[in-house]
Design a protein around this nucleic acid. Structure first.
Lengths: 219, 219, 219, 219
DNA sequence: CATTAACCGAGACGGTACGTCTAGTCTTCTG
DNA sequence: CAGAAGACTAGACGTACCGTCTCGGTTAATG
């Protein structure tokens, strides 16, 4: 996962309303804003998180937020991407390396699905993730950006691993890797989102079993 | 699907500070509020829908809303349930009859999955559904109520049909019908929510094929 | 001096932006706002007096101020008129009775000029008066309203008394009572405003002597 | 009227936190700032004139203003003094020469009072003058400086001319020239400030007549 | 003649207040 | 007494300026 700094397209349109000079931006403030935003969402929830609250907690003027982001959701998305980038860096070294390929498809998928379960159960991620999902539900533009930088890259990782498995003959030649990727992740996301049932490693394993059974090559 | 009128437990507690007399409630106002809420959410989106706006559009005092519902989300949930009940009534006659059982599992599931796709693509349902989902993401209490009256009943219908199929030997004896139900609905919901890919009948069919392949009884 | 409640012309124009119902207005809030506004201007000065500050001190929502007044200056004008009305009521009984007429013009004018000096030296009046004058300097509309309800009525009182004096033969028949009124009040106001010299009873007396000398009937 | 360049006492205090080197000051910027300040006040009014606006219009950094002046009012005062100095220079040659003394007191005063009326009616002076007066009403320190460089010098000119008149026996020996000066200027200023009545030459003449009548030597 | 100090335009920063909007409560009047 | 109407307290919104603080880039006087 890459950091993806805001990038307010400095397209040289004629009646450009504003264009802050990104090179003079305060890194200190940016970090403080990320930390404050994540903390507030986790502690108080998205609805009670306000731009004013973030600014106050970060020790920053409100305008410094509005100068660089169009909404609190955008702040939170960048904050979350930053958090994820940090986590990746701490763990793997090079970011976004994809799903491991040990040759054992079931084991590899079990590993990442269990990790996903753990992440969704971790309050540090749960709060911000819910906030982003809620905003995406309500704003198509935001959903588009979110899908682009979060959902698609994640699904693509599964697709790549499954593609490799197909080439190895581990799954049926006519299996649709995109659908397979969705079958692996959507039910997890669904349980997390609606809390219909507890989200456990056992569930992830059972889910995996059912999906792989449908993918296995036929004689 | 049952209508589920509001029913803010009028439990006769001793020091109840409020207990509006439901028998004197204005049916006219209730309907107007439902219509206004659904219309506003559909037209302007959840974020721009306000309690004041609903009241004004319904030609109703704000207090009339706050007297009977705790939040705009609750209004919308009731409005949506009412809408669904009306639709059921118009269609099937008796509501909530479950998934048809013609003996052909694939055909039955294809029928309901396609119907679900159509519903999710219908603006009349899309707006309110997104609003409810967004609220549920942010408020656990609301999510609980929503799950109880919307998600679980829907999943239960799939479970019942799959259970019947298992008894008929149409699917493997050791298949988990709950997981199967989630495999059928969650990917649909996921595509709808994040708009990662278009939501079509073809997709529903492909999804069904993959899931059934995993469920089929083995020799 | 009369109270002059705001009176935002409820003219029934077609696209009326808003028209709060004055009959349902909270008298308690109105009084609290007046008190807070006067206190803040007196204590902290006009520049540091803010609408938010007035609202906070009055224990009132900001909107309650904006609902009834277009600006802090307008609030202050009404507050000042109210203060003056109260003072009149406490003193004379019926308000706005004019300059006394004991038959002795010099004595009558000396009395009111000294009273004016005392008032201008009283911090309770000084602060608000400076604020109003400053606003009037900068906003012609505000100046017009201020002149109408404050300056002209005051000058008219002098004119009436001087007119009576002329009829009695106490001043020259060809004297211009308007100019005479201005000669009596403007220098006082000037010293007060620019603080060029102390504003004392002795000064008022000397001023009066010089003006009356010019007005006295010639043989 | 003297030019009075800023001169923020560069007193060599020990821990002086700031002491810009006036000798290296950009004359170009100073002029641009004066022009911008006067233009903005005249065009948009004092309230809508901002330091940022002046800086932008002058093509100058904000800091260049704050380096040399403590507030926008101070900028405007200097700009106004500069304007007046320029006008004096254009007219008389040597500045601040005082009221003419042709031997005819009435004619001399009529001349300057009419000139004052013209100046107060000239938008070029009206805007800035109102701004300065408004600021002086609200800030005693600013009023003091303004009085010192503007009001007192002006009144002193009248006092000097009237003193000369007294020595010539043109006015009563016991007349107070200070009060006389105020009687001539304050009513003019009052009408200008509150716009109670139009400010015309006829008014100036009538005012002069009334005042001189009071000053004339008695038998 | 190069060095160097500081003024300059520019504008990001932490803040405060603006005037608007909505939430949720309270009050008044009508059917 | 339910309901329509809407004023009330409260507080977040997004904008505009404040006055301070860098940041490079010219100048100007000095060493």
């Amino acid at each position: 996962m890459t950091t993806e700094k805001p990038a307010q397209a400095p397209a040289p349109k004629a009646p450009a309303p504003k264009a802050p000079d990104a090179s003079r931006r305060s890194e200190r403030s940016r970090r403080a804003i990320y930390d404050a935003a994540l903390a507030l969402v986790t502690e108080a929830g998205y609805a009670k998180t306000t731009v004013e609250g973030i600014a106050a907690r970060a020790g920053v003027g409100k305008q410094t937020i509005y100068r660089w982001w169009p909404s609190k959701a955008a702040v939170l998305l960048d904050a979350f991407l930053d958090l994820a980038a940090q986590a990746d860096e701490a763990l793997g070294g090079d970011a976004d390396s994809g799903i491991p390929d040990t040759g054992d498809l079931a084991a590899d998928l079990r590993y990442v699905l269990r990790a996903t379960v753990d992440e969704l159960n971790d309050p540090k991620y749960d709060g911000p993730t819910r906030a982003l999902a809620a905003e995406g539900l309500v704003s198509p533009e935001f959903a588009a950006r979110m899908t682009e930088v979060l959902m698609e890259p994640q699904l693509a990782r599964y697709e790549r691993r499954l593609e490799a498995a197909r080439e190895d003959g581990d799954i049926a030649a006519d299996a649709d890797v995109r659908i397979a990727a969705e079958l692996l992740t959507a039910p997890l996301a669904h349980r997390w989102q609606y809390r219909t049932r507890p989200l456990t490693h056992a569930y992830a394993d059972a889910l995996l079993t059912h999906v792989l059974r449908g993918l296995s090559p036929r004689p």
